[in-house]
Design a binder for these strands. Structure first.
Lengths: 100, 100
DNA sequence: CCGTATCCAAGTAGATACTG
DNA sequence: CAGTATCTACTTGGATACGG
């Protein structure tokens, strides 16, 4: 009962979604299952290209989303949630409810 | 449908709980409704006194918890969640489930 | 179009010492 | 006991320029 925490499941989850733009990215992808890089950028008004790329890379690394690259010229990419990513929906939803 | 986000409810919530130790503090207070400063410190093994004080001060400012000070010598204090703070339970709980 | 590399300014957090 | 003050090292993120 007096166990020290941190690195508990709660923090695992927080690490994954608490990047500056991550929760919002997940939210967008829950509503729009497939998004191109430029679509995401358009929706996240103040998020720089650099930041967006960073956040997406981390989300991909953590198994939350999948990136597909099409060998067109110029290159196009799109992003969509994995199953594990979709399971974040209850959390994002309750965060939205609480925030109102 | 193409509205830019950020500063949406999701982010409001994230701001409140995503401090380095905040989610864990809330979790502890959900299980132990009244905690003294030293109790919290004991449970958050790697959290310095300074950090704990900072996080608590922000949580108090955001209306998540209430601080009571008893004019004993030496001073003692305790912390407990507000109603609004208690309403974070579904979020913390689902974060815990997901993290496992 | 979709990034990456570099530089730099600002913010953040630990260590330590002090206070009512 | 429960903090605050200060100093410093580390991290973060914006601006800009370049690359496939």
């Amino acid at each position: 009962m007096a166990k020290p925490i941190k690195n508990c499941p709660i923090d695992q989850t927080l690490q994954v979604i608490s990047g500056k733009w991550k929760a919002v990215i997940i939210h967008v992808l829950l509503e729009n299952p497939v998004c191109r890089f430029s679509e995401l950028q358009a929706r996240l008004k103040n998020c720089s290209r650099r930041m967006l790329a960073l956040q997406l890379k981390e989300l991909e690394r953590d198994g939350i989303l999948t990136k597909r690259v099409y060998p067109t010229v110029p290159a196009t990419t799109d992003y969509s949630l994995t199953e594990r990513g979709k399971q974040l929906k209850p959390i994002i939803d309750s965060m939205q409810s609480w925030g109102e």
